[in-house]
Amino acid sequence: MTVTFPQKGLPWLLLLPQLLVTAIFFLWPAEQALEQAFYQEDAFGLSREFVGFENFIDLFTDPLYYQSMLTTLFFSFSVAILGISVALLLAVMADRVIRGKLAYQTLLIWPYAVAPALAGVLWWILFDPSMGPIALWLNSAGVDWNHYLNGNQAMILVVIASTWKQISYNFLFFLAGLQAVPRSLIEAASIDGASPFKRFWTIVFPLLSPTTFFLLVVNLVYAFFETFGVIDATTKGGPGQSTNTLVYKVFEDGFVGLDLGGSAAQSVVLMGIVGLMTVIQFRFIERKVQYS
């Protein structure tokens, strides 16, 4: 657009609030984290000492950090793949039905509004080894369920709670994607004698691939950064280190362990990862814009 107002000072005034908040609560802390990452501080915050890259070296030689990375990757991909699969199934079914489509949509999307911490608490109760109905049922079926002691079971629990909340989001995007598939293509395929299943895998699913890829990225970002509440309200990273994701570890090492330098170094690494993911997301969006 070429049409603009000629004022020179006014735009700065309009931008000022946003820039101030960004500078004070985003750039300054980010700069602090960057600085902190090169210092070591004692637990009482009385003295600090410049240590160069030592915090980073410590971080990358710490087996726990690698374990946390693996945990994060496993957790994120599990959430993304499980959430996408279930949502796709439900969206395909919802796209098929003629009656009650809106009612189904309403009844499926509300978990988006539930805070991650609350989602965690709800599932935690259901799986509670001493009184949760699912845990009791599993016990009677011969599975010894105790997520307080069993790291794998704890992981399953946080994956379920995190996925549960995200299904609604994926569902909406898949439904929109399905509705954008041209009817004529489906009709042509059915005249060519393709069965509904064949039509889905050969026509519909390939056309949904941009949506699927987009959701994969969004879900990974979600699992990385927005599931803090799920973990904090339930497993707190345990038992052992079994659900200690990278984001939770930044918090835990900083606020519980009071290792400010180590926590800051982790922050810096995470900022790098977020930056990378944002770039990927934007690259993808650019491509999407070109196609449409």
Partner: peptide, 12 residues
């Protein structure tokens, strides 16, 4: 600010 969610830079 997109790249700096609060969880990531929580301590500072």
């Amino acid at each position: 600010t997109l790249m700096l969610p609060v969880e990531v830079r929580i301590v500072p």
